[in-house]
């Protein structure tokens, strides 16, 4: 463990190297030296990660590369064995999902976690309903009108089109449901939004809607992390691609001067077989950055 416990030598992932995307100052979210083992399996090895406000980062990698483990470490589902998390430059401790939520980090999982039987407004405000005060403490009915007003405002902001926000979400398409799940995070004042395979189950038109919405999130100044298997989607919407392989961060690309083939080879390790022999994340990063 000792060889992974120390943070990466800084400089390999210097923000300045990324060009002119909105990467001045502190990242909205920064992780350093994250390691996590499940029994004998080392799921993450000394991984650094950072995402800036107003930026979309694609987190890619093959199955078992550690993408989910990293996301779970950020969202508080799993606690990493070592490493540090900084939110807005401040050191943060995330040991449970509520910690992440309180820090403004929201995760949209693939299953979306919507109640099909409830309407759009009810889903958007689930667990944090707005209430009137009819009689203090005793009678505090739901403030449906204000919730509906705010719901339509946030859906307008994301440019989500829905026949009526009073229909049960069971009646909506996959893309619309994805949009509702994302709108939910906006209503919680998220600063960092993690999207797990947002386009996996969607058709062509719905995928475009969702990608459009991701751009809108970026434009409104949020830090967005997209986990995806679909490189076409990744290239269409992200600013930077971070590649994980076998629990290590092996490469970082700026999409503007990268080809999908380069990313694929980083994911599979095809051209960089020697990286693995060195058994250290720093070397891998360095060589990949040079290749760029």
């Amino acid at each position: 463990m000792a060889e992974y416990a120390s943070p990466n030598p800084s400089g390999n992932e210097a923000p300045g190297a990324q060009g002119q995307t909105a990467q001045q100052g502190e990242p909205a979210l920064r992780l350093t030296g994250i390691s996590k083992a499940f029994g004998a399996v080392q799921a993450l090895r000394n991984v650094d990660f950072e995402v800036y406000s107003g930026e979309v980062v694609g987190l890619v990698g093959d199955n078992g590369a550690g993408k989910s483990t990293l996301i779970k470490a950020i969202s508080g589902v799993n606690i990493p064995d070592s490493g540090q998390i900084f939110v807005g430059g401040k050191h943060a401790t995330i040991t449970k999902p509520a910690d992440a939520t309180n820090l403004g980090i929201e995760t949209v999982y693939q299953d979306l976690a919507l109640c099909d039987n409830l309407d759009v407004v009810a889903n958007l405000f689930l667990g944090r309903e707005e209430r009137n005060v009819l009689i203090p403490v005793i009678a505090r009915p739901l403030d449906e009108i204000d919730m509906e007003r705010r719901a339509s405002a946030v859906l307008k902001q994301l440019d989500v089109k829905i026949p009526s926000i009073r229909v049960p979400v069971a009646a909506l398409s996959g893309g619309q449901r994805q949009s509702i799940a994302v709108a939910k995070t906006i209503l919680r004042n998220a600063q960092v939004v993690l999207l797990d395979e947002p386009t996996a189950a969607l058709g062509v038109a719905q995928t475009r809607q969702v990608l459009q919405m991701i751009r809108r999130l970026r434009d409104s100044g949020l830090a967005v992390v997209v986990i995806s298997h679909n490189l076409a989607d990744v290239f269409e919407v992200v600013d930077r691609v971070v590649v994980l392989r076998l629990g290590q961060r092996v490469a970082t690309f700026d999409v503007r001067n990268t080809t999908p083939e380069q990313v694929v080879s980083a994911i599979t390790g095809a051209e960089f077989g020697e990286i693995m022999k060195s058994d250290g994340a720093a070397n891998g990063n360095a060589s990949q950055e040079n290749a760029k």
């Binding site: 919507l114 109640c115 099909d116 409830l118 009810a122 667990g127």
Partner: peptide, 18 residues
Amino acid sequence: RHVYAVGGNAEAARRAGI
């Protein structure tokens, strides 16, 4: 509202903090 949510999708309700 929370009773309906638990009946509709208990896991979603749990994640929503109910």
